Deep mutational scan, measured.
Amino acid sequence: RSRTNFTLEQLNELERLFDETHYPDAFMREELSQRLGLSEARVQVWFQNRRAKCRK
């Protein structure tokens, strides 16, 4: 699998939701992934990586 390149719109939406909650539930992830045209797994990994970045 190659690296996912997020569009600016996708990143803005992901960051907006991250500001609301660092741990979106499965329903939120599924709804977001459909809206952004990403797989739920990519959304989940993005949040994992974003939380790690936040801890640094």
Rank of each mutant, 00 (worst) to 15 (best):
1 R>M: 09
1 R>V: 11
2 S>M: 09
2 S>D: 13
3 R>I: 13
3 R>A: 11
3 R>F: 15
5 N>M: 09
5 N>L: 10
5 N>I: 15
5 N>T: 07
5 N>S: 11
5 N>Y: 05
6 F>P: 04
7 T>N: 05
7 T>E: 03
7 T>G: 02
7 T>F: 01
8 L>S: 13
9 E>G: 07
9 E>R: 09
9 E>V: 06
10 Q>A: 08
10 Q>G: 02
10 Q>N: 04
11 L>C: 05
11 L>F: 08
11 L>Q: 15
11 L>Y: 04
12 N>E: 13
12 N>L: 09
13 E>K: 04
13 E>V: 06
13 E>Y: 04
14 L>M: 08
14 L>C: 01
14 L>K: 00
15 E>W: 00
15 E>T: 00
15 E>F: 00
16 R>C: 05
16 R>N: 07
16 R>Q: 12
17 L>I: 10
17 L>S: 07
18 F>A: 01
18 F>I: 02
18 F>Y: 08
20 E>V: 15
20 E>N: 15
20 E>S: 09
20 E>W: 03
21 T>P: 01
21 T>Y: 08
22 H>A: 12
22 H>G: 07
23 Y>L: 08
23 Y>S: 04
23 Y>R: 05
24 P>N: 01
24 P>T: 00
24 P>I: 00
24 P>H: 01
24 P>M: 01
25 D>A: 10
25 D>H: 03
25 D>K: 06
26 A>W: 10
26 A>E: 12
26 A>H: 08
27 F>P: 15
27 F>W: 10
27 F>C: 12
28 M>W: 01
28 M>P: 06
29 R>S: 06
29 R>H: 08
29 R>N: 02
30 E>F: 06
30 E>M: 12
31 E>C: 07
31 E>Y: 00
31 E>V: 07
31 E>R: 09
32 L>E: 04
32 L>S: 02
32 L>C: 07
33 S>V: 08
33 S>P: 02
33 S>G: 13
33 S>H: 12
33 S>I: 03
34 Q>P: 01
35 R>A: 09
35 R>S: 06
35 R>V: 05
36 L>R: 00
36 L>N: 02
36 L>T: 11
36 L>P: 00
36 L>D: 00
37 G>V: 02
39 S>M: 06
40 E>A: 11
40 E>W: 06
40 E>M: 07
40 E>H: 14
41 A>M: 06
42 R>S: 15
43 V>Y: 00
44 Q>N: 11
44 Q>F: 09
44 Q>G: 12
45 V>N: 12
46 W>V: 00
46 W>F: 03
46 W>E: 01
46 W>G: 01
47 F>H: 04
47 F>N: 00
48 Q>I: 01
48 Q>G: 08
48 Q>L: 05
49 N>C: 10
49 N>T: 15
49 N>P: 01
50 R>S: 02
50 R>P: 00
51 R>M: 09
51 R>A: 04
51 R>S: 03
51 R>V: 08
52 A>W: 05
52 A>G: 08
53 K>A: 14
53 K>S: 14
53 K>R: 09
54 C>Q: 15
54 C>V: 04
54 C>F: 12
55 R>F: 03
55 R>K: 13
55 R>I: 07
56 K>T: 10
56 K>L: 03
56 K>M: 06
